[in-house]
Amino acid sequence: MSPDIFIKAAPVVLQGLQLTLIITIASFLLGQLLALPLGLARQASSPLLRWPAAVYTFLIRGSPLLVQLFIIYYGLGQIPAVRNSILWPILREPLYCGIIAISLNSAAYMAEVVAGALRRVPKGQTEACISLGISRRHRLTDVLLPQVYRELLPNIGNEIILVLKSSSLASAVTIMEITGVARAFTARTFAPFEVFITAGILYLAIGFAFTFLFRLLERRYGITGTRTPAPEASA
């Protein structure tokens, strides 16, 4: 172990920071966006919606992300129809493939979480809406989903950490994010210990920043009275 290499490794590993953040944030946002319709479909009364969503989550959750990433990046390019399609400029790029694979994955996990939270909203909430004449759409947008997402803030904060860690797999398809540059640097210095410890510390720091951000969101948007006792509760 040499302190010199730590000092040399730091700026190198930091070069990957930007790509790691891009992959993490883009995959996280896309994943959340897809998770909502998927989660609703998992809870739908129509089997035509429920089954495809169930199959999707089964396939995605049941196979390794790295395998999915290889299928998307290496596999799809084998199909002429894909190479000739308008999607090819996207599927040709390892960065986009990484974001697609990670967000599809995150969406599958998050969809189950959203569906579970929808199931946990007390039935009385829906009944109160019906008795007031509130339409299905407004029931969802004004009553159910605001409660679901407030409850899920801790899970969502957790999910962004998982996505951050998954982003390191993108190095397997040539992307020079933190893990990617760390591997390249190791190949040159033969000092994997120092380099990967530096990378690990950087991941921890990013994860800590995300956690802190979600703590703030929870404090701001958590349902009043569920976590902190209200000062005037006995009034």
């Binding site: 009944e127 109160a128 007031l132 004449g133």
Partner: peptide, 15 residues
Amino acid sequence: GDVGMVFQQFNLFPH
């Protein structure tokens, strides 16, 4: 809303 309902468990919107 022509028929108002009051529930045992109140069912107010907590958020």
